[in-house]
C-alpha cells in the first residue's frame, strides 16, 4: 500500500487523571474516505482536535506525508492542509456563499476586496465538486438548507487548499435525501484525491461511503478495517467492545 497521508503513532492525551487517548494509531490515505467510529466518550473528538491543532496531543508521533510534524495550533494544521468541518459548520448566516467560503482569507487587490475574483473562484470550487444544488453563489447562507450549508462548509476546505478534510458528523440532523447529497459529495472529495476522515455514528453512511473504518473503543484503536472486507455486525462488535478484550477504565 502506498504511503499514508497522515499517520498517527501511539498518540496519547489525557485531561487530568482521565486518559482519553491511550496510545492510538491511525492511518489516513489520500483519495480515500476513512470513517472514524466509536461510542460516545471513545475519544473521537479528542483525536480530531489533536489533528486540527486545537488540543495538541500529549505524546505520540504525527506524520504528514511521511514527515514528522508538531501540531500545536490550528494555524499549523491549516498550513499543512488539514481542515476541519465541525458539526456547527461555523458559517455566518448573514453573509452569502462566496463571502463565507473566503471568510478570513479574502482575496485583496490593492487593499480592497476583489469580489469578482472571489466569486469566480468559489464557483470553480463548487463546480469541481459537481455541486449543482445551489442556485446562486450570492445567496445568503440563511436561505440555504442544511445539506447545502454542509456543502458550502466542505467546499470552503477545498478553497483553502486542504489535503486532509476532517468531517465531524456531516450527516447528523439531515434528512434522507440531503444525507445522500452530502455523502455523494464526500465520495467525490476522496475521488479527487483529498484525504477524508469522517466521524460518524451512522453505520449505514459509513458503509456507503468509507473505504476504511477505524474503530475507537475507550481511547484505544481497536480495529482498522477495510470496508469491503467487513460487516456491520463486526464493526458493531468492535464499537461496543464485545469483540475485543480491552479492559475498561
Amino acid at each position: 500500500m502506498s504511503q499514508a497521508l497522515v499517520q498517527l503513532k501511539n498518540v496519547k492525551k489525557s485531561f487530568g487523571p482521565v486518559d482519553v487517548l491511550k496510545g492510538v494509531d491511525l492511518e489516513v490515505f489520500a483519495g480515500k474516505v476513512t470513517a472514524l467510529v466509536g461510542d460516545n466518550g471513545a475519544g473521537k473528538s479528542t483525536l480530531i482536535k489533536g489533528l486540527a491543532g486545537v488540543q495538541p496531543y500529549d505524546a505520540g508521533e504525527v506524520r504528514f506525508d511521511g514527515e514528522l510534524q508538531e501540531l500545536h495550533s490550528p494555524r499549523q494544521a491549516s498550513a499543512l492542509g488539514i481542515e476541519v468541518v465541525y458539526q456547527d459548520l461555523a458559517l455566518c448566516e448573514n453573509l452569502d456563499i462566496v463571502q463565507n467560503m473566503f471568510l478570513g482569507r479574502e482575496t485583496l487587490k490593492s487593499g480592497t476586496l476583489s469580489e469578482a475574483e472571489m466569486e469566480a473562484a468559489a464557483a470553480r470550487a463548487l463546480q469541481s465538486l459537481s455541486v449543482k444544488t445551489v442556485r446562486s453563489v450570492r445567496q445568503t447562507v440563511s436561505s440555504l438548507s442544511g445539506g447545502q450549508r454542509q456543502t458550502v462548509a466542505i467546499a470552503r476546505t477545498v478553497l483553502r487548499d486542504a489535503r486532509l478534510v476532517i468531517l465531524d458528523e456531516p450527516t447528523a440532523a439531515l434528512g434522507v435525501a440531503q444525507t445522500e447529497q452530502v455523502l455523494n459529495l464526500v465520495r467525490r472529495l476522496a475521488d479527487q484525491g483529498y484525504g477524508v476522515l469522517m466521524i460518524s455514528h451512522n453505520l449505514y453512511d459509513v458503509f456507503k461511503v468509507a473505504d476504511d473504518i477505524a474503530v475507537l473503543y475507550l481511547g484505544n484503536m481497536v480495529a482498522q478495517l477495510e470496508t469491503a472486507k467487513t460487516t456491520s455486525n463486526e464493526v458493531i462488535g468492535y464499537i461496543t467492545g464485545i469483540a475485543t478484550d480491552v479492559k475498561e477504565g
Binding site: 490550528p74 494555524r75 448566516e93 453573509l95 463571502q99
Partner: peptide, 25 residues
C-alpha cells in the same frame, strides 16, 4: 464596510462571532 477586510470582519462578527473567530479574524 463594503470593500475592506475590516468591514467584512465587522459583518462576520455580527453574524456569528464564533465563526469569525474560527475563520481567523
Amino acid at each position: 464596510l463594503k470593500r475592506t477586510m475590516f468591514g467584512r470582519a465587522i459583518f462576520a462578527i455580527g453574524g456569528d462571532d464564533e465563526a469569525a473567530r474560527r475563520a481567523g479574524f
